[in-house]
């Protein structure tokens, strides 16, 4: 409950009645929630529930058609300046990594800092190398993404997002495309990041991670937040039938 009390003080993300349609299909049916600076939120729910779409609206990869989203005091509108401002503060990690295949791992990380933050090449490389050190793959800096494993690629992708010094990190099912033995190396990095105080929104099916790291778990179904609670309450004492069903199904395997 602590997170919800804080929500009144200083939310870094505020969403009010956010709606989204894909043509006639109503994906988000009025999401109202907010996230604190430093909060670690896990978003779960069945596929098609709108959870990925929701976090993608937060950096305008998807446009919301009704409601307001305010990130660090800036409202997301059609204004390109606002969008660019917000994208610089929000880092994103994708299910399919989406590394740039024609650039080395190091160049993947330095591109944003050089072109957007206007660092010099050597400054950007210094930042990139220390980030690669942090995600434990400094030795892969000069290889291309296709030459390293999926788990390593995802760690490069995390480093790429961090290089922009974001205030918020969004993770869109970061481990769903990984082989089982690589999931833990990515989760380790995310755990370390969580402990460093980063504001994190994580869409994931890794319930162990949610229980261990999250301040709050949000359960999405059919475009709505059905239930949100700290992980202990969420997993041990779910209130809604749909949540109970989801938890029992997820924990079975």
């Amino acid at each position: 409950m602590a997170a919800q009390e804080n929500a009144l003080n200083d939310p870094i993300i505020m969403c009010k009645d956010v709606h989204k349609w894909f043509d006639d299909f109503h994906v988000l049916k009025g999401i109202t929630t907010s996230f604190q600076t430093g909060e670690r939120a896990v978003i779960c729910g069945p596929s098609g529930s709108g959870k990925s779409t929701f976090i993608r609206t937060l950096n305008r990869l998807e446009e919301h058609q009704r409601g307001t989203i305010i990130i660090d005091g800036v409202e997301l509108t059609d204004d390109l300046r606002n969008i660019n401002l917000i994208r610089q503060e929000v880092g994103m990690v994708f299910q399919q990594f989406n590394l740039f295949p024609h650039l080395t791992n190091l160049e993947n990380i330095t591109l944003g800092p050089i072109r957007v933050r206007k660092l010099t090449k050597s400054e950007a490389e210094e930042v990139a190398l220390s980030l690669l050190e942090r995600v434990d793959i400094a030795d892969q800096a000069y290889k291309y993404p296709a030459e390293i494993s999926g788990g390593q690629q995802q760690r490069v992708a995390i480093a790429r997002a961090l290089a922009m010094e974001p205030k918020i990190m969004l993770f869109d099912e970061p481990t769903s495309a990984l082989d089982p033995e690589m999931i833990s190396e990515v989760l380790d990095v995310m755990r370390e990041l969580a402990h460093s105080g980063m504001t994190m929104l994580v869409v994931t099916h890794e319930m162990g991670f949610a229980r261990e790291v999250a301040d709050r778990v949000l359960f999405f179904d059919e475009g709505l937040i059905v239930e949100e609670a700290p992980p202990a309450d969420f997993f041990d004492n779910p209130q809604h039938e749909r949540t109970k069903l989801f938890i029992s199904q997820t924990l079975q395997h």
């Binding site: 994103m92 024609h102 591109l111």
Partner: peptide, 27 residues
């Protein structure tokens, strides 16, 4: 060019011209 490449470029904060020049056209 997969859609994910555009999205990743946008997420890093590159604008249309930068995305086209550094991500899309080279590939």
């Amino acid at each position: 060019i997969p859609r994910g490449q555009h999205e990743a470029a946008q997420a890093v904060g590159l604008n249309y011209v930068q995305t086209t020049l550094f991500i899309v056209l080279p590939q």
